[in-house]
Design a binder for these strands. Structure first.
Lengths: 138, 138, 138, 138
DNA sequence: GTGGTCTAGACCACG
DNA sequence: GTGGTCTAGACCACC
């Protein structure tokens, strides 16, 4: 359950946090009924504004992944794991599809697209391995 | 050489214009030494503010794809076609790679990723065909 | 870190701003990772439109000298100092070279050119000294 | 008396023409009392708009370098040669001085400036030699 | 508070 | 006619 945020990344910080929490749930790192880290703790750990963490959590509440237990904090809802898994896949699919569609409408040929895909797949495997080893970055 | 912009797309209008012009160059629709549509004409045609078109063109100047001929207009620079083709491919690769990397670091398995890719590829082909037939959309 | 602009100078205001910021970085007045003055503040201070400052900053982003931290502001990128120093020298060299080339192709003799250079060098030293003393000008 | 213009140069075409005519006069290529090429001829030869040539000539009239002889055309005025020589030197000096001043106010050291000057001087000599040999460019 | 985008409209130099 | 610059002001997302 180690989160990290990249501020100079284009992707809003609150989104990065929300995604990583959702991923943790999808992978079982955070189980149903468990408390997520408190806004204050997490914000300190990530060195971001508490409002930002709060916003990430709010978004996950809106997606019915987290719910507030009065006097306790935010916990993972029942059914959240399946939802996160499904959602993760759906988002991935949409993103890839949109890139591919744009590639087509810019007249890249099937062969070019295929070769780009193959290269990216290989590169991602290599990079993933590297990250697993290094395990530290900025 | 028919450009179109989608205002509620997330992607900034000036970027859409710049990309489409760059694509036109990459595909030979706009040849080296040719004048691109004038700022005022294109802005009228696309129903956007002239400044927005100007900004798109300015960006392409920064990339050394266009250059201005004083009192004449903007023309496609020598070597622009290769640059646009290479750039298009590079951008595509980066985008796909970043999605794949995120997929990996969210612990999706190789099989899941592969199946998502295959589905997206098929879907994109179908959609491309549809677009070719319809030839008009929003 | 005192910037100033000369509106009736031929040189576009946004360029003057961009250069001065780049120089501040080259000279260490603005360190890597530091926030540059906010668009609104600087525009107020210089009495120019915020868009003009924004354009200057945008240009420096394109040169990978600045990058935006969402919700925070613009900071000096890693490696920016070296880049700015190198660039400053390059620009100077090009400008001088182009003047010299034109002098040559207008058939000025070596001796004339050399004498002009010497005079200009002396004059610039004197003027620089004067500016250091006065420390205020229009 | 071979003129050439560079449209994608930043320098206004009419200025390039005016300068080259003035240089021809300074070098004796065009003698006092001689007719300069007609607007129509020169514009055809340079492939530029006649208005542009006319403007260049107008500027030289303003500088009292050319004068119109009714029914004849434009001729080089008495004293034009000295004036052009002086002017050429003055313009050169000003341009070099302004570059040097900017270099100083951007905190380049004396040594850096001197080295840049030396390099530029050497480079300009080399380039000038090359141009003399090649004698053709775009 | 920060920057980013877009619109509207004015003025300039150039050809 | 062309692009380039600048201003003024609105609206957005993010932190």
């Amino acid at each position: 359950m180690f989160f990290n945020v990249n501020v100079s990344n284009g992707v809003p910080v609150y989104e990065q946090i929300a995604r990583q929490v959702a991923n943790a749930i999808a992978n079982g790192g955070l189980g149903v009924g468990e408390l997520v880290p408190s806004v204050r703790n997490l914000s300190r750990e990530l060195a971001v504004n508490p409002n930002t963490v709060a916003r990430a959590y709010r978004q996950l509440q809106g997606e019915e992944v987290l719910e507030t237990i009065r006097g306790e904090g935010l916990v993972v809802m029942k059914g959240a794991r399946a939802k996160c898994r499904a959602n993760r896949k759906k988002v991935m699919s949409q993103r890839i599809l949109s890139v591919l569609l744009e590639a087509r409408q810019s007249h890249l040929s099937d062969e070019e697209i295929q070769s780009i895909l193959d290269d990216a797949l290989k590169a991602s495997k290599k990079q993933a391995t590297r990250n697993k080893i290094e395990k530290g970055d900025s």
